[in-house]
Design a protein around this nucleic acid. Structure first.
Lengths: 115, 115
DNA sequence: GTAAGACCTACCGTTGACGTCAGGGTCAAG
DNA sequence: CTTGACCCTGACGTCAACGGTAGGTCTTAC
């Protein structure tokens, strides 16, 4: 599969795919002419990356996870990092939830004022 | 209160406070010598800003909320914006939750492999 | 064999929330 | 009236995840 199709099917830009490669997240093969050739599961991988990016993981962290995604095993450092990230995400969710509550307060206060 | 104390008590940098002012979020008075003079409630306001920043609201949006924070009322546009932001935050939380689940899967899969 | 797409590398530009530095003024104490 | 801590205004630097552009190459259908 060439880069354009991966982009369409995974919903990211061609530029983003080349960026992921630059960050070591994808290592597609090359055609005789030098064009990138992706395996079928590249689309799923990219979707997974997007999910992690959306949770605030930087490329470096995702790269560190790659071996444990591929092998299904983790080293001590990887487990520590995973736990740290999970904790960070939990705290982020708490922060978001708190902010949401504050916005809700604002809306309700204004609604009460109108009533 | 001068800027340094506000910074210490709210936990943000002096630079950040000046930046907030630049964005129209704070408008402290000035001493005869030109130094910023903040009211007592500035600390709480700053903490609130931090909470909204943490939830992904940009300065512009926070600035748009200021009048409705101060007056306790909202215009039609503000209510629409508030709803949009709340929706965005909810989706963000969903995204984070999904990513968290994926990381949990990784950890459990690796744990099972070790067992 | 040619023309339209799709692709390549290399590089600069963007955005947001600050960090950091330079060069100088202010304030309270002694 | 000087010292030291604190503050001021620019203005440039940073970092991440790409966006966009220029100038050229590959692939494929006709």
């Amino acid at each position: 599969m060439r880069i354009g199709e991966v982009a369409r099917r995974s919903g990211v830009s061609v530029r983003a795919l080349r960026y992921y490669e630059e960050q070591g997240l994808l290592t597609p093969g090359r055609s005789p002419g030098g064009q990138r050739e992706y395996p079928e599961d590249a689309v799923d991988r990219v979707r997974f990356f997007q999910q992690l990016y959306a949770a605030g993981l930087p490329s470096r962290r995702i790269a560190e996870l790659l071996p444990c995604i591929d092998t299904g095993t983790t080293t001590v450092e990887q487990r520590a990092m995973l736990d740290a990230e999970r904790e960070r995400i939990r705290k982020q969710i708490d922060g978001y939830t708190a902010a949401l509550a504050r916005l809700d307060e604002l809306v309700e206060a204004a609604a009460a004022r109108r009533a």
